[in-house]
C-alpha cells in the first residue's frame, strides 16, 4: 500500500551535521524523517521556496534533461528502509512505456518538487521506520535508564 506524502519542511540536525527532510502523510499523520546531506538539502529547499538560482543547479538540470528527452516524472516512491538507508524509485513515462529508476530519496524528492510529481511512501517503510526508530531508541538505553525494581 502506498501513502502519499507531503514535504513538511527541513530541519538541521546539529549532532550529525546533516539535514532532516520531514515527509508527512496527511491522511494518517504518519511522519517520515529522512536524513540528507547539505547539498541535497539545499536542492530541496530551493524547490520548496521556489528560488530560481542564477545558474541551473544539478536537479534543475535533471528536470531540463528529462523535459528535453520528452520524459515525464509520474511519481516517486520511498520504497524501502535497510540499515538506516532509505531507498527510492522514480517512475518515468517515456513514449508509451514506463521506466523505473533506482534513486536516493533526496534526489527523488528534489526531482518530484521540481516536476510537481507526487511523493509516495510504502506502508512497509512507514511501519519499519517506526520499528527501527524504536530499536535505535532501545539500543541507546543504558541500564540506569531502567527503573530499579524494589527488592
Amino acid at each position: 500500500m502506498l501513502n502519499q506524502m507531503n514535504v513538511r519542511g527541513l530541519l538541521f540536525d546539529p549532532y550529525n551535521n546533516a539535514y532532516i527532510v520531514i515527509l508527512r502523510d496527511e491522511q494518517h499523520s504518519d511522519m517520515l524523517p529522512i536524513w540528507v546531506g547539505k547539498s541535497e538539502a539545499s536542492a530541496i529547499s530551493f524547490a520548496l521556496e521556489k528560488i530560481a538560482p542564477p545558474r541551473p543547479m544539478t536537479h534543475d538540470l535533471m528536470k531540463t534533461l528529462l523535459d528535453n528527452m520528452d520524459a515525464k516524472v509520474i511519481s516517486t516512491v520511498i520504497t524501502d528502509l535497510k540499515e538506516n538507508t532509505y531507498f527510492a524509485k522514480i517512475h518515468l513515462l517515456f513514449g508509451d512505456s514506463e521506466f523505473t529508476v533506482d534513486s536516493r530519496p533526496s534526489d527523488a524528492i528534489a526531482v518530484a518538487l521540481r516536476t510537481e510529481a507526487p511523493i509516495f511512501a510504502s506502508g512497509e517503510v512507514l511501519h519499519k521506520q517506526n520499528s527501527e526508530e524504536l530499536e535505535r531508541w532501545l539500543e541507546n538505553l543504558k541500564p540506569e535508564d531502567f527503573g530499579k525494581p524494589d527488592a
Partner: peptide, 13 residues
C-alpha cells in the same frame, strides 16, 4: 549520486 542518477535516466531512455 545525483549525477549517477542522470546517467541512469539517459541509459534507461
Amino acid at each position: 549520486m545525483s549525477h549517477d542518477l542522470i546517467c541512469s535516466f539517459a541509459s534507461h531512455l
